[in-house]
Amino acid sequence: MCWACRAAEERLLHAVLDAGDDACRQAPGDLLGHIESRAERFHRASELVSVFAVLLIGNLAPEAPLHDRFLTRRRAAVDAVAEFIRRQQQAARCRTELDPAVKAVEFVQAGLARRTWPEELHRVDDIPRTASGRIQKFRLRQDLAVRAEHA
């Protein structure tokens, strides 16, 4: 993919996340209100879930354009949940023997619907793309089938 196309794709990816972040900032201030708002938004526009999943999977590699941003978002989510648990513990609304950091990671991970978890991860050296930059999924499937035959 040409440099200008990559730059345009990166701007588009950031714009998608910016739109989601703007919607989050408009949500109610407490964590539960924010979670409810996000769930309602995904219910109203269920295609956002698949767009987000594609963006996330496409940016797992450290050199991917949105990798650092996704990592920062995940850490912020874990920190926010851990702080919420601590406040609940201080107010005697939550068991004090729970480790807020551990529970926060469990909660954030559980927030991903099971159907969005990949069944398998395969490392590839290059992602086949069309001339316009779209991923050629059929070629990825073909490569996986060939690998399975040789395994």
Rank of each mutant, 00 (worst) to 15 (best):
A45E: 14
E47M: 09
E47D: 13
L48M: 14
L48C: 11
V49F: 07
F52C: 11
V54Y: 07
L55Y: 05
L55G: 05
I57D: 06
N59R: 00
L60S: 00
L60H: 03
A61V: 10
E63T: 00
A64Y: 04
P65S: 11
H67P: 06
D68C: 03
R69I: 05
F70I: 04
L71V: 07
L71D: 06
R73W: 06
R73I: 06
R74Q: 13
R75W: 12
R75A: 12
R75F: 12
A77P: 00
A77M: 10
A77T: 08
A77N: 05
V78R: 04
V78W: 01
A80D: 06
V81Y: 03
V81Q: 01
F84A: 03
F84Y: 04
I85Q: 00
Q90D: 10
A92T: 03
A92I: 02
C94Y: 03
T96S: 11
T96Y: 04
E97V: 10
L98S: 09
P100R: 04
P100S: 12
P100V: 12
V102W: 11
K103G: 05
V105M: 08
E106I: 10
F107G: 02
F107L: 13
V108E: 04
Q109M: 14
Q109I: 11
Q109C: 12
L112I: 14
L112W: 15
A113N: 13
R114D: 14
R114M: 12
R115F: 10
T116N: 14
E119H: 11
H122Y: 09
R123N: 10
D125N: 06
P128T: 11
T130H: 12
T130R: 15
A131F: 11
S132G: 13
S132V: 15
G133Q: 07
G133N: 08
R134Y: 09
R134E: 08
K137R: 15
K137V: 15
F138C: 05
R139G: 03
R139H: 09
L140Y: 06
L140C: 07
R141D: 13
R141T: 15
Q142F: 12
